[in-house]
Design a binder for these strands. Structure first.
Length: 518
RNA sequence: GGCAGCGUAGCUCAGUGGUAGAGCAGGGGAAUCAUAAUCCCUUGGUCGGGGGUUCAAAUCCCUCCGCUGCUACCA
């Protein structure tokens, strides 16, 4: 059965207590490239990001700042909207857990779980460290000199008990395993999938899903003493945004289940275990896929606030350029692995791949057209074998890139595009249009036409990754907006000979080290 | 500790039974259209150590060494 061409992709909602860093930028960037690709490929895309604004930490931070929590979150969530704008993300919606629509959705999913007998009232007890605001397991504790129990962090813990509602997660282990088995692509990469499965196989405990010790959260229906605990609240955002609780709405029917939840590896468990369990328990469909990507290090060092080596995305954009940063993050490491950000590697990518690669190819080709073809798309003659080879290589790149994008292989997609660039450079050298200028101008025209066509396709392919630069590249070929989708990728949408072209300008500057002060 | 995985050229990684690969870095050459960019050739590896299975092992098995991830309620 033919399903409508729609694609729903989400980032996690980011906890507003953190300042936006490279991790946030990276997750959303991957989703953005995916969303842009799917749109160009004819899909109706819904790309969601947002902020998680509830919880004890937010409540405390607001208090410390002397404002009420809502005013506090209004302010800090703006940082994430600013980031989205600065990184040129194309999200269709930005959800905040403090919105009315979301509270309604949370309370409704709670009611459904309650009605189906998936929630019961119990009490949550454990060793709690006030300083860390966290519970610890018995086996993590050590005994301090004064005989008190000490958390791994060094904080003293005390035994506390509070009433709490529980979700019967323990009853969902087998159903989850059956679900993973029936949906082998549900968790990626493969190694993460294995971890999740082994975790579930080791047995699941019921999950505490309410708290009474603070107020900043969604109230539990019919029990005002409790607020809903983070994960049920946070995860529900994914269905809130497509119209839940109105699960008969056009929006919900069209976009749920989500095609992909992109997450960092640290929150995989919540997305791959709790979330499908919540949904199945509420008789809703689980999402289709969760991808857990890796973390960045900075010049080989683990990034941490205490080391003071946090990477601010805006700083990178300012220093290297927006599209250069986007390109680096998606190209440098196999998506899913951890990766290292270093100035050296960044400059390498920026100069070798961008300036010397696509930048130089476009500039050398378009300059020759500008100077030797009356600044218009040249009239080609018949294609010879070499021409066909390059045209075909470019033609075949789209389906290859598509396959890689569908499995979130961003680095492979870019590598595929760069193979075409390499072939085009070899083609220029072999054909030597600068020599043909005198010996065989008609053949020169054909060669330059083939190059322009190749650049057209490269520009189209680069749009999801480097939207602004690709746009400038395509502007230099005077492509109409309709001619910029993948529907216009083929030969039947080839450049029209005679089309006047502007004087080309470099799109990818090289990075030049500032001279050391002497 | 338990479970899982990894260790291949200076760097990042591909290669899962049949003559060791790519990109970048290094060396040499060509070309001069282009952001001194490009193209060609090339140096470089006892595929972590040892043992075994096989006509044949980076690839399968055993063992040792080193590294990483997961091992539940801060998000």
């Amino acid at each position: 059965m033919a399903e409508a061409k729609r694609y729903y992709v989400t980032t996690p909602i980011y906890y507003v207590n953190d300042a936006p860093h490279i991790g946030h930028a990276y997750t959303t960037l991957a989703c953005d490239a995916l969303a842009r690709f799917m749109r160009l490929d004819g899909y109706d895309v819904h790309f969601l990001t947002g902020t998680d604004e509830h919880g004890q930490k937010v409540e405390k931070s607001a208090k410390a700042a002397g404002v009420d929590p809502q005013a506090f979150t209004d302010k800090v969530s703006q940082n994430f909207r600013d980031l989205a704008k600065a990184m040129n993300y194309s999200n269709d919606d930005f959800i905040r857990t403090t919105e009315e629509r979301h509270k309604k959705a949370c309370q409704e999913i709670w009611r459904r779980l309650k009605d189906r007998g998936e929630i019961y009232l119990g009490s949550y007890a454990g060793w709690y460290a006030v300083r860390d605001e966290a519970y610890y397991g018995e086996d993590e504790l050590t005994v301090g000199p004064n005989g008190k129990k000490i958390a791994p962090s060094g904080a003293e813990v005390e035994w506390v008990e509070e009433p709490s509602y529980f979700f019967k997660l323990s009853e969902w282990g087998d159903k989850l395993l059956a679900f993973y088995d029936a949906n082998p692509d549900f968790i990626a990469p493969e190694s993460r999938r294995n971890e999740v499965i082994s975790f579930v196989k080791s047995g699941l405990k019921d999950l505490s899903i309410s708290r009474t010790t603070f107020n900043w959260g969604v109230q539990v229906p019919d029990d005002p003493d409790h607020i809903m605990y983070v994960w049920l609240d946070a995860l529900t955002n994914y269905i809130t945004a497509v119209g839940f609780p109105d699960d008969q709405s056009a929006m919900y029917k069209k976009f749920w289940p989500a095609d992909l939840h992109m997450v960092g590896k640290d929150i995989l468990r919540f997305h791959a275990i709790y979330w499908p369990a919540f949904l199945m328990a509420a008789d809703l469909e689980p999402p289709r896929r969760v991808f857990a990507h890796g973390w960045w290090t900075n010049e080989g060092q683990k990034i941490s606030k205490s080391l003071g080596n946090v990477i601010a995305p805006l700083h990178l954009v300012e220093k290297y350029g927006l599209d250069q940063t986007r390109y680096f993050l998606l190209r440098e490491i196999p998506f899913g692995n951890d990766g290292d950000f270093s100035h050296r590697a960044m400059v390498q990518r920026m100069n070798s791949d961008l300036a010397n690669g696509i930048g130089n190819l476009a500039q050398r080709s378009l300059s020759m057209i500008n100077k030797n073809c009356d600044a218009a798309v040249p009239q080609p003659g018949d294609f010879n074998e070499a021409d066909e080879r390059l045209i075909n290589a470019a033609e075949e790149a789209l389906p290859k890139v598509r396959d890689f994008i569908r499995e979130q292989g961003f680095h492979k997609a870019l590598e595929t595009i760069w193979q075409v660039i390499g072939e085009a450079d070899r083609y220029v050298d072999e054909q030597a249009p600068w020599a043909l200028r005198k010996t065989d101008p008609a053949r020169m025209n054909t060669v330059l036409y083939v190059l322009a066509e190749t650049i057209r396709r490269l520009g189209l392919l680069l749009q999801p990754f480097m939207p602004q630069s690709a746009e400038r590249l395509l502007d230099q070929l005077v492509l109409s907006p309709e001619a910029r989708t993948f529907a216009a990728y083929g030969r039947d949408h080839a450049l029209k000979p005679g089309t006047a072209l502007p004087k080309p300008e470099g799109v990818f500057p090289r990075f030049v080290e500032p001279e050391a002060a002497s």
